[in-house]
Amino acid sequence: MRLTPVFLLSATDAAHFPGETKTYGAPEIAFLGRSNVGKSSLINALLGSKQAHTSSTPGRTRAINFFALHEGAGDKKKQRPTMIFADLPGYGYAKISKAISAEWPKFIEPYLAERETLALAVCLVDTNIPPQANDTVLIRYLQEMGKPYLVVGTKADRLSGNVLAKSVAALKKAHGVEEILVVSSKTEAGTGVLWQALRAVLGAV
């Protein structure tokens, strides 16, 4: 069953996060990655709607955007979501790197470190470019914090065969991970497998 998405809010401060209450205390899936890695596009592909704003200008997302996902009919405002997606600001884009670096400690690090309802961090890496040091830093941070995470390779439709396989192998080696799920927001290849992984998280919380 496809979940029905409802936009909740944009947060630029920990005080703005959805309350961890009966209404909003559902497991949260956070999507993280470099600017222009395709976070919003992947979220839209998973949801089957254009809930997440996409932009040709990297780094446009400057807040954590929360989307509640519901099963079944009824008044969504009164239902506890099945899960919540959190679209986090990108990092690593040269023109805004200083601004993003200044904002991360204010509300993103507390979200990752202290959010009790955070069930999984989905770390997006671009399969079309060499491994990036910023991605490794994020993955190591989550490992050190003991946070559950999943590494997903985006834009897989742009590569094929041995080229894609070599790219994924290089990403695994550089980031020190054993598994990378490969997806394409354009063709939706791999999104079904990713959904299975996300639903598996629900059974573990």
Rank of each mutant, 00 (worst) to 15 (best):
L3S: 11
A52N: 04
T12K: 07
S184D: 01
E178H: 10
K147P: 03
A15V: 02
G59V: 05
A189S: 15
T57W: 04
H53G: 02
T12P: 10
R140I: 00
I108Y: 04
I180M: 04
E28G: 06
N162R: 11
K95P: 09
F7I: 10
Y24W: 15
L9N: 14
K22E: 15
K98N: 07
N36T: 08
I29G: 01
L120E: 01
T191M: 06
E116D: 15
V122S: 06
D157Q: 05
A11S: 13
V152A: 00
T136M: 05
S10W: 00
L3E: 14
P131T: 12
E116L: 05
A99L: 11
G48H: 12
M1K: 06
A86R: 03
G146C: 04
T187E: 03
N128G: 03
L124W: 06
G203T: 10
C123Q: 00
A170Q: 09
F17Q: 11
V6I: 06
L138S: 04
I43Y: 04
L171R: 11
E103Q: 15
D87N: 02
S49N: 03
W195H: 12
L32E: 12
P148R: 09
I100G: 03
S185C: 11
A197G: 07
F31V: 12
S40H: 08
F7V: 09
T191E: 06
V163T: 10
L181H: 11
V152Q: 00
Y93N: 14
